[in-house]
Design a protein around this nucleic acid. Structure first.
Lengths: 184, 184, 184, 184
DNA sequence: GATGAATGAGCATTCATTCAT
DNA sequence: AATGAATGAATGCTCATTCAT
């Protein structure tokens, strides 16, 4: 029943996963005891891995951004850069923007979350720029857009996406605006 | 020396205004004692007007929506229905969508906020539809849009608006898409 | 069963008295819950009167010193200044030095207790100097001693007093050293 | 690579030394983790040598008393018993009484410290009596004093010694009272 | 024997809520 | 109707202790 030493890393990962899910679902008001219970560990174990609640919130904010950044890094070597770019943009709109909204909601409750999220966000930005550049060199993405435009675009597209009257179809309409063949 | 009955209503209004400002600025974590202090009343007085904290949060969520609904009602008798419609849409994007975002953020922390916000939201929807209908009859707004479209539009426009790379110019670009003269 | 408003001051006094006794008997490790329980109040009530534990410890340190300072102020108008002085010195050795020892023990555990005890200690010192001066003018106390000497004297006398082999008789022997008639 | 058996004894000594220093400097509130860290061992190692924290506190209380007892035993074979006695009394006033004060401060926090300190204190008492007897037989110390007197004397002398207005000179004045040549 | 991750009870503190005034 | 002192459950955090490695 008692976890072994080697499981310490797995414990950390499980706590973080539980925290992300709990904060996303019920807000940052979820108690650490509740998170510990859901993760199947003692309250002290949560504190061993995340010394303060703010540290856990920061990590929970950064986590989905890190996942997306890693996903971008994995797509950069695709043999079809254009397809890779649009796949990633769609993922951003569906998942990533949700992560942004999540971070936005948490931001006002954390101590200095800008710091915590700055580095993963930079990684994500770099990955997105790399994918965009590759798609542009591939001739599949319009040349007159940059990552800054994508930020606002993704935010707007996500807002429409999550709206009751919106839906998955909206994404295609909006992402089409980024393709070169629209001008063709 | 003791406040008269009429001051009770003023007290309620002041508490609500303080709560809206406090929740918007610092999140729903602000304590009722703090709100009571800022409003210049005792802790018990807050509970007389809002029996539970959830009730106060609900009222604070509904408040800005109510303001916008009243604004819409005030604009419906305008002599220039088209101008009135676009003025209100812009206000929605700037303020109203902020109110939505505010409500979004609070939603997950309140008990059953859908209930609390349903009625003011219906009033706002009714006002918006009236303004849209009048503008369409006036020939200033495209006839093939409805209030449902506007919801998603306002949400997307607001997301772009509040984005660092966005700004006030974005609104004009987007609202232009609703005008009939675009087809001209 | 529920205390009335007017009892708030009495509550504070009872909490402080309980805290002084508890800290003296069992050290500052005594929990606030325990103190609240012994005082017959809720945990929150302790915090209303003493926002942090450090504040309560500080107040508990200062309390016996304040009592002695008030005692000195009450003795200054005595018709027999010499008697008043020696009565007070004896009280200092028995009770006051205990208060010092108490404060000494707590000092290392409080945040900035020097600050907290500085003012009551100054009042006590002023009272002691006034009593000594009056006794010297009365011709009952040696003229070549000052309050600084008394501090070390009281500390030493108390140490001997509380020692198993010491006792109340030691005080007379030691205080006799301060009297003028010893030279006579 | 793993420490051999002999290092276990060194570990125990290092932990105890660290504990004495830590408790003396920062009070018994210092955590065992902190002591383990300062001693360069794991938390479990502290518990292997001292099963409970109370056991470590007890050992830390007894430690300086044991050192003094050993010192007394070392002085008993001196060729100048009178000098040896007064040297040791001075050490008692400066260091030993500090150890007493230390023990006093810790006493209220430990479970049953009387037990823990009883045996080392008996050793110290025996050593002091031996030194006193030798000095009396040597003619250097007054014959009408006993170890019981010395306890109160050392306590009083130490209290005066550590007092701001006191100092090293005070010791000479007080120890002179124990010498035979005062009668001369 | 040593390590350090895990435990879980205990602590100080906060806060929504109640109620005597 | 208003006040604010009191309540007590809940929270974040600490730490002595246990135990798998």
């Amino acid at each position: 029943m008692r976890p072994a030493r080697a499981d310490a890393i797995a414990n950390r990962a499980r706590i973080l996963a539980v925290a992300v899910a709990a904060f996303e679902a019920d807000g940052v008001g979820v108690s650490l005891d509740e998170i510990a219970r859901r993760a199947g560990v003692g309250a002290g174990t949560v504190h061993r891995h995340f010394p303060t609640k703010a540290a856990l919130v920061d990590a929970a904010i950064a986590e989905p951004v890190n996942v997306l950044a890693s996903r971008a890094a994995g797509l950069i070597d695709s043999t079809d850069p254009t397809a890779a770019f649009f796949v990633f943009v769609e993922e951003l709109v569906v998942n990533g923007a949700a992560a942004h909204a999540f971070a936005d909601r948490l931001r006002s409750d954390a101590d200095d979350p800008e710091m915590a999220i700055a580095e993963p966000l930079a990684r994500l930005r770099a990955g997105l720029e790399a994918l965009l550049g590759a798609a542009q060199r591939d001739g599949g993405a319009r040349g007159d857009i940059n990552a800054g435009h994508l930020d606002a675009f993704v935010a707007a597209a996500h807002a429409a996406y999550v709206h009751p009257t919106g839906g998955i179809r909206v994404i295609s309409l909006l992402t089409d605006g980024l393709r070169t063949h629209r001008h063709a």
